[in-house]
Structure formats: C-alpha cells, structure tokens
Simulated assay, not measured.
Amino acid sequence: MAIWKGVFPAVTTKLTEAGEVDLVATRASIDRLINSGVSGVIVLPMLGENASMSLPERESVIRAAVEVAAGRVPVLCGLAEITLHTAKKHAALYKSFGAQGLMVFPSLGYKTDHRETVEWYKGIASATDLPIMIYNNPIAYGVDCTPAILADLVDTPEIVCVKEETGDIRRVTDMYVAFGDRFSIFCGVDDLIVESSALGVTGWVSGMTNVWPAQCVKLFDLCAQQRFSEARELYHILTPSFHLDVHVKLVQYIKLAEHLVYGAPEWTRAPRLALVGQEREYVISTVQKAIDILAVRG
C-alpha cells in the first residue's frame, strides 16, 4: 500500500467567468505544481469545489490531472458524498478514471457518531483497493475522527493516512503515541505546518501551495531537515497569507491569491461569489505584502 510523504496541494479547480470548468487552466496549474517539486496532488478537494461539480466534470478533472502528472507524482481525488452507497460507487469510478488514491470526507449530509463514522470509512474501503486518506476536519464538517475511532480502523489496510485538521496541535502527538507509524499523518492546516512538522508529521495537504508551490516545498523541506530557524523566517513571511486558508471563504481567497501571483482565473461557482470591497482589498494587501518580500529575497 502507498506511503505518502511530502507536500500534496489541495488543487483548486479552475473555472471560466461563466462557471464552466477550465481544463486548460487546471492542467497548467497542476503542471506548475509538479514542476515546483510537490510530492503529490489532490484534485477535487473541498478547495476544488468538489460538491458543486457534476460527475462528468469530476471525471474530466481527474483524467486531466492523471494525464498531466504522467506518473511523476500520485494523483489523489477528494471523495465527498452524502450516502455510503454513492460514496462506494464513486470510489470505484474514480479509480477507473485514473485516481491513485482517495481523500475521503465524512458524510456531508449527516454528523455520524463513533460507530457510524467507523462504518462509513470501512464501507468505502471495502469498495476499492485504492489507498485512503481520512479528511479529519471537525470544524467544517462536525465529525471528529478521534484516536478512539482510528483504533477501530487500524485493521482496515486501505486506510493509510490522516489529514489532521482539528486545529488542536496536540492531536498529532496523541496519534503517534496511540498508533506509532501505522498511519501517515499529514498537516491539513497551512498556518500550523511548522508546529506540526516539529511533532513529526510526514506530509502537508496545503491550500496556499497553489499560490507559492516552490516556497511551500522549501518550507516543508526545511522543517523535515530540522532547520527550524530558517523555516521560521519563511513562515513569518507566508503566515499572514496562510491564515487565509482557514477562513470559510478560503476558495475565493486562494483563487484570488493565485490570480495575483501567476494570473490564474479567480472565478468560483455560485453560491460563491467574487470578492468585493474591503474584503477583497484585505486579501490583495495581505498577498501583495508577501509577493513584495519574496521578490526582495529572491
């Protein structure tokens, strides 16, 4: 089974102003990420507006990503569904489209309890032999895949990784104490990456890596090499922008940041709307400050 390590950007799905999937821009962004040194890509995450995409659109994005990656890095796909039946069906479909792994959300339609959460993940694992990353974001989805729940999943070999996004930095150590290296543990919060790295995470699912892939890979590598003094310098420059990754409008924020840094389309699909007024100016000023400092540093 796969062992994932390194920086895995949660890739934004590029759209036209009319709200259609822009495969040309999406492919270009994925190629840019891979050329900048990321270790994997995750298409159709929440940041990729998964829930607003039709199945044919998802297929087109997965197939495009696999074609662009061309075996250079693994391509994972977000799996975000309401019912177990549909989740199992789509897990098998996404493999047929070329996905090499799944980042699995809890049910989007119901806050499962301990027993139901275990059965959700076991059920999806039974429908595919693809390796699975658990997307643990109780702040957004109301379901916490706690160490007690993970203890009931240790005998499910398809589950290989946890994207840790509780915001509680102690959870990283708690999982290592409980399970050793049974699961790869990825930081899922951009503005906790240095802290998480100090505790031993093996990877990073990152939103702002869409914007600054080379710098984010460098930051992760500095931490992996325990060069924390150098890492903190770069972290201090990027953290104000990293805070944009944990806002409810992170899709709009990160797409606008991509537009500012390398001209990618900023459009989102309704009900998300383009940023306006003071909110837009705040994002622009935050990102522009980092752009200016990085330009001076070279």
Rank of each mutant, 00 (worst) to 15 (best):
V251S: 05
A99F: 02
A270P: 09
R227T: 08
T128G: 07
R171F: 09
A87R: 04
W4C: 09
D181E: 13
L294N: 01
K111H: 12
G123L: 06
G71F: 03
G180C: 02
R72T: 07
V143A: 03
P147C: 06
V251L: 08
P213T: 08
E266D: 10
H114M: 12
V104F: 01
L102P: 00
L275Y: 06
V7A: 02
P265L: 06
I291T: 08
D292P: 01
W212Q: 05
A25E: 12
D181V: 10
D113G: 07
S52M: 14
Y110W: 14
Y282E: 13
E57I: 00
G101V: 06
K88N: 01
S126Y: 06
E81W: 03
A99G: 03
Q278N: 13
A91K: 03
V104G: 03
H243D: 10
T173N: 10
F105K: 06
V154M: 13
S241P: 06
H114P: 00
R72E: 03
K111W: 08
T286Q: 11
E266H: 08
Y253L: 07
N210E: 08
M103E: 11
S241T: 14
T166C: 09
W204A: 02
A178Q: 06
D221W: 10
A178P: 00
C161I: 04
E158M: 08
D22A: 02
C223T: 03
D190H: 06
E81D: 11
P265V: 02
K289R: 14
G19N: 07
G200E: 03
E116H: 14
A99R: 06
N35Q: 14
V217A: 05
E281V: 09
S197Q: 14
V41D: 08
P271F: 09
K218Q: 15
V261S: 10
V11I: 12
